[in-house]
Structures are given as C-alpha cells and as structure tokens.
C-alpha cells in the first residue's frame, strides 16, 4: 500500500494508470503533466513512489528523475516509456530509477513492477 504520484503528459496514460492503481491498495496522491510540475508535486506531496513518463515536453523524464533523486536520494521512481530500447532505460536505471514499464502497459505488469520497486531497500 503506497502513496503514488503519476507524472505523464498523456491524460489517457494517467487515467489508465490511475484506474489500475485505484483497483489495488495503492492511493494516487497526485498527478502532473510534465517534469516541472511533477518535481514541484514531489516536493509538496512526498509520495512513496513516483511513476514517471520518459518522453514529455518542458522537462523530460530522465531530467526529472535526476532532480527528484537530488531532492531525495532514496526516492522510488518507476519509469514509464514507449521506448523499450536498451540505452534509454539503462541510463534511467544507472541514474537511480527503481524499474521501468513499457507502454502500452498491462494491469498485472504495472502492479508487479510497483510491488517490486516498493520492496527495494
């Protein structure tokens, strides 16, 4: 059971994620549509976990990830991306992301990855 912040420029993706998370024990405490808004909400809401889209206008996901981890080094961030290619995700994992989910996502996969990320020390 965790408080989760969703950062994604797509309202459809946010709706889908929210629906999946609402059907579980988790609580969506906030939503943001780009990295700038997401970082502000992260500071304000102190969520247990952040789902963070990679491709976004203003501040992209990788930059936002770095800013979040600079704010709180043990923050749990799960990246969401349509890009299943290795280097982007490796870069995110190297930077400190807990895990990643590729779009289009499925309920079981989302909840499984989030559960795994929350279990990480």
């Amino acid at each position: 059971m965790a408080n989760i912040l969703i950062i994604d420029d797509s309202v459809m993706s946010r709706n889908k994620l929210k629906k999946i998370l609402d059907s579980s024990d988790h609580t969506v405490v906030g939503e943001a549509q780009d990295g700038v808004e997401g970082l502000a909400k992260f500071k304000k809401l102190s969520p247990d976990l952040v789902t963070l889209d990679v491709t976004m206008p203003n501040m992209d996901g990788l930059q936002c990830l770095r800013e979040i981890l600079a704010e709180k080094s043990d923050a749990k961030v799960v990246m969401i991306t349509a890009l299943g290619k290795g280097d982007t995700m490796l870069e995110a994992l190297d930077a400190g992301a807990a895990d990643y989910i590729t779009k289009p996502f499925e309920d079981a996969n989302v909840l499984g990855v989030i559960a795994g990320a929350l279990e990480q020390g």
Binding site: S10, S13, A82, L83, P104
Partner: peptide, 22 residues
Amino acid sequence: LAKDALGEFMNSQNGLFVSNLY
C-alpha cells in the same frame, strides 16, 4: 482526450519501431 489517445497510439507504435531499430 481523443487527440491524446491518438498521440499515445503513435507513441507506442514508434516506441516499438525505434526499439526494433536499436
């Protein structure tokens, strides 16, 4: 929302395409 969904379809399609190229 409709425009966003169309864009998301393209994003998923292109994400897979770029992954294949990778």
